[in-house]
């Protein structure tokens, strides 16, 4: 289960993030990168996951609109998508 940082630390408020990635399930196919309307997804070439791939990473959380298109095209169901808390919604 992709553990959302919020779930992990619900006691004190954390900077909010729209996307949680199951890093070790990603195979770096980049289909989400192409599908993201805001082009804020990219492969993290600085590290390799358990499967031996560069996994995807959100490059700019503020630009993400939580549209979940990435989750829709992802063959490995790596994304958990959250919408911004009401007051902070842009």
């Amino acid at each position: 289960m992709a553990i959302s940082p919020i779930a992990m630390a619900t006691r004190q408020p954390l900077p909010w993030t729209p996307l949680v990635v199951a890093v070790d399930h990603c195979k770096g196919c980049e289909l989400c990168v192409a599908a993201c309307p805001k082009a804020v997804l990219a492969l993290d070439r600085s590290r390799v996951n358990l499967l031996g791939y560069h996994s995807v990473v959100l490059t700019d959380a503020t630009a993400c609109t939580s549209c979940a298109l990435c989750a829709r095209v992802c063959p490995d169901a790596v994304f958990t998508v959250w919408a911004a808390p009401r007051e902070e919604r842009r």
Partner: peptide, 12 residues
């Protein structure tokens, strides 16, 4: 997650 006030859009 209620406390976090963020709303889940999608989860596998």
């Amino acid at each position: 997650q209620r406390a976090a006030a963020a709303r889940l859009v999608y989860r596998k």
